[in-house]
Each structure stands twice: as structure tokens, then as C-alpha cells.
Design a protein around this nucleic acid. Structure first.
Lengths: 198, 198
DNA sequence: CATAGATTGTACCAATCAGTAAAGACATTA
DNA sequence: TAATGTCTTTACTGATTGGTACAATCTATG
């Protein structure tokens, strides 16, 4: 039997989805209520500051998830190549081959950017820095790693835009493949060296 | 003395700006009226189908401009390297170093995508195809040119997103520089051979 | 100057918007 | 079971939304 009273945390995922699909302005309280199954009363009980607080909560959860699933391995794993590989796999899953919009990226190109600028900046800075760290651990010099990490994050955002514009997930797939070739260094066998294929 | 009656074409530029700044949903008729200096009467006289027709008109004008200023040179100029160089300069100007949003890209990641899918697709297909043509004329093989042209258009969109997210035009600048290095071939002196620097 | 057509201002509409208020239902603890 | 604090339902507000209707005004042509 389902719980009759809801928790704030249960609302985050449907909130994220409705903001992704309709944007900040487009996500009306009617749509939000429908997506979360919560009435206005409940929504304003959990998020007294309305839509703005809902988006902030969603952005915080997105940041938390990326930090745990993507940034931390990039920063901490000894196997930098493996962490980068895993990042590309995670990204492919998370954005559903480009069918799913990046909420943070979408907010960045909207007029609501300024309202969420801190969270938006944090998301991307965290990503670029974490990837930079992995690239340096690969043995690349700082400047090249800086350029490359920025370029990779940028390419992922562009891939979402273009694959949605052309309605073709293969565009996203190709972009990820290209990145794998550009980011994962050849001849680096420090990932365990269990290459016993003889 | 300014003309008392307006023309439809005069409204396109302010319309483009207001849709860029506020998105489709965010651009209310009040904002549109303010931006264009036109009342509802005039707006619905010129665009009987309302906002949708306004956006379609803006997208048509954007497509026309890009086709004339960017795609045509990429397709037709004998100097492919020069055309690509000019494209990157135009892009830098047009998007104001990433400060200005790409309306087509923004629509592609919004829920209004389906309504304008044909125009959105046309814009990006036109760009990728034109760049592909220039890259082939450089002497590259078809597959590499395909990948590279897609990658370049994608990188420009991503650069807009990231530079806005970080509020740093230098990100956009670096992305354009990177593209110049990747797209403009060295040692190709078929651009007129007026290299009389001896 | 008269007429026709293009353009504009104003008043208006029903629907929807974000947000508020408060009484009621629920679960938790004692 | 009584009391407390969390959650939900319902009704409501005033503002704004996109869109319509139409009379008034302007401009070009005869």
C-alpha cells in the first residue's frame, strides 16, 4: 500500500523531469502538480518559495548525483582512463543518447540563467575540474588538460543540442565516440594490466 | 520623420531578440509589443497565427541570413580555407562571443521543438552540409569531412551553452580557436598563393 | 478630394497563471 | 486516547496570458 503522505525528496525526480520537458516558464503549477501527484498545498508546504525553490532543489540533487557518480571517480580513481570511460558511459545513459535534455544547460541559455547562476556555474566548474584532474593523472600537462576538459564538456552539451535538433541519437553516439578517442590515451595500461589474451 | 505605419519586415529583428532573450513561452505579447513598438492589433495583422507565426518568420530570416553569409561561401568559394575562416569570424560576431544565445539551438532543447522541427532541422542540416562541402574541397575524404563538420557545428552550440553557463566569453573564444586549428588545413596554399613575404 | 485598403488603438474575452489562506485529515508520540 | 505537528484539500485572489472584434486612422491611388 502506497504511503498516503509524501516526502519532499519523492518530488525531486518528477520535478526534474517536468522542468526538463517544459523549461522554467513552461512548467506551470498545474503541470507540476500533475507530474508529482501533489496539490498546490503540498507543493507550497515543501517548497515555500514556489517554483524557484523547486528548481534549486532539483539542481542541488543533480549536482549531488553527478558529483557522486561522475566527478568523484574522475578526481579520485587511480585508473584515470577507466574513470573517463565510465564518465562517457554514464553520460550516454543519463542523457538517453541525447534524447534527454540537460536541465542545467537548458537553463544556461534561458533568461532564468541569472536566477540560478551559482548552481549552473557549480555544475560545469565541477565537471571541468574533475575531468581536468583525470587528464593530468594520465600524464598530460596542465594546459592541455585544461583545454581538453573544457572542450569535452562543451562537446557533450553541443551533442545534446544537435542530436535533438536533428532528432537523431546517432549524432550523440558519434560525439561520445569521438570524445573517447580524444580523451582516453592509447598505450596506457595502468588499468590493471589483465590483458591476458595470448 | 519616421514612418507612421510599420512594415512586417521591421518587426523581425526585434522579434528575434525578444525570443532569444525570453524563449518562446517567456516572450509574452506584452514583451513582444514593447520590443517591436507594435500593439496587438498590428502584431495580429502581420502575424495572424500569433506567436507561432512570429517565430516561424524569425527562423526563416535566420536561415536566410546564414545561408547568404555563411553557407553559400562554404559551398561555393574556391578558397575553402578562407570560407571556413570567414565562417568562424562570422560566428564569433553573430553570437557575440557566446553572450548571445542561438535561438535555433535554444528551441531545439525546449518543449516547442516539435512545433518548429522542420526549420530547426533545416538550419543545422544546411550548416553541416555546407561545411562538409568545404572540407571535401580541402581534399579530405567524405567520411572524415562528415564527422568533422558535425563536430564543428556541435562544438559551436556547446560553446554557447558553456560560455553562458560560466559567464565567460573566453570559453567561446577558445572553442573557436580550437576549431580553427582543427578545420583549417596547414600547408594548403591554394588560396591564391600571394605569399610573397620574402 | 474621394474612395479603398492597409495599419493601428482600444476594449474585451475566457483561460490560466503563481500564490495565499485556512480548515481538515493524517501520522506520531505520549 | 489525547495532543501535536506534518501533510493535504479546497476555495479563493488579483494579475496576466494569448487571442478576438471592430471602429478609427492613416496612406496610396484614382
Amino acid at each position: 500500500m502506497a504511503r498516503l503522505v509524501a516526502e519532499r525528496s519523492d518530488a525531486i525526480a518528477p520535478l526534474a523531469e517536468v522542468f526538463r520537458e517544459h523549461g522554467y516558464e513552461g512548467a506551470s503549477l498545474a503541470l507540476i502538480g500533475e507530474a508529482t501527484g501533489l496539490g498546490k498545498g503540498s507543493l507550497y508546504h515543501f517548497f515555500p518559495n514556489g517554483k524557484e525553490e523547486m528548481v534549486q532543489a532539483v539542481l542541488a540533487e543533480i549536482e549531488r548525483w553527478f558529483d557522486e557518480a561522475v566527478y568523484a571517480p574522475l578526481r579520485d580513481e587511480v585508473d584515470a582512463n577507466g574513470a573517463i570511460d565510465a564518465m562517457l558511459d554514464s553520460v550516454m545513459d543519463y542523457f538517453r543518447s541525447g534524447r534527454r535534455v540537460c536541465l542545467v544547460g537548458a537553463l544556461a541559455v534561458s533568461n532564468t540563467r541569472d536566477r540560478f547562476s551559482q548552481a549552473i556555474r557549480g555544475y560545469f566548474v565541477g565537471w571541468v575540474d574533475a575531468l581536468h584532474s583525470a587528464l593530468v593523472r594520465q600524464g598530460r600537462d596542465d594546459d592541455q588538460a585544461r583545454l581538453l576538459s573544457e572542450d569535452a564538456v562543451l562537446a557533450i552539451q553541443g551533442a545534446i543540442v544537435l542530436s535533438r535538433a536533428l532528432d537523431d541519437p546517432a549524432v550523440f553516439q558519434r560525439a561520445i565516440d569521438q570524445l573517447r578517442g580524444r580523451l582516453v590515451v592509447e598505450g596506457n595500461h595502468n588499468k590493471g594490466a589483465n590483458d591476458d589474451s595470448h
